[in-house]
């Protein structure tokens, strides 16, 4: 039944096309000058339209490099923190000093 309905729908007649419409539109447009949008909103929209972020692969490579660099830096900082020789222990402090 659905197929028959589709078949009937497909048989719907095409509207007749006015032959002079194309010429009318083209002729009318010759008397109209184009407007260029220069509003603030237009500028913002066009800025973001033309702003393209880099390819994901480049972003990933950049992040990897960044990660590698800071990874080394953090490793050095971590080693520095765990170097016990730099820790200072006040041997003279005893319980009575606190009381």
């Amino acid at each position: 039944m659905i197929d028959l309905l589709d078949k009937i729908l497909r048989k719907r007649a095409e509207p007749q096309f006015p032959v002079n419409l194309v010429a009318n539109i083209i002729n009318a447009s010759k008397n109209i000058s184009q407007q260029k949008s220069c509003s603030y909103n237009g500028w913002i929209i066009s800025f973001f339209d033309n702003l393209f972020l880099p390819q994901p692969a480049f972003v990933l490579a950049f992040l990897l490099l960044l990660g590698t660099f800071f990874g080394f830096e953090l490793e050095n900082a971590y080693m520095f923190e765990h170097d016990l020789s730099i820790l200072y222990i006040e041997d003279s402090l005893e319980l009575r000093d606190w009381l």
Binding site: N24, A28, S29, Q35, K36, S37, S46
Partner: peptide, 18 residues
């Protein structure tokens, strides 16, 4: 009405293609 609509749409497009 259809002629006016299509003409209007195309002329607006030409006037303000942005």
């Amino acid at each position: 009405m259809s002629e006016d609509i299509v003409q209007d749409a195309f002329l607006k497009l030409w006037e303000n293609p942005d």
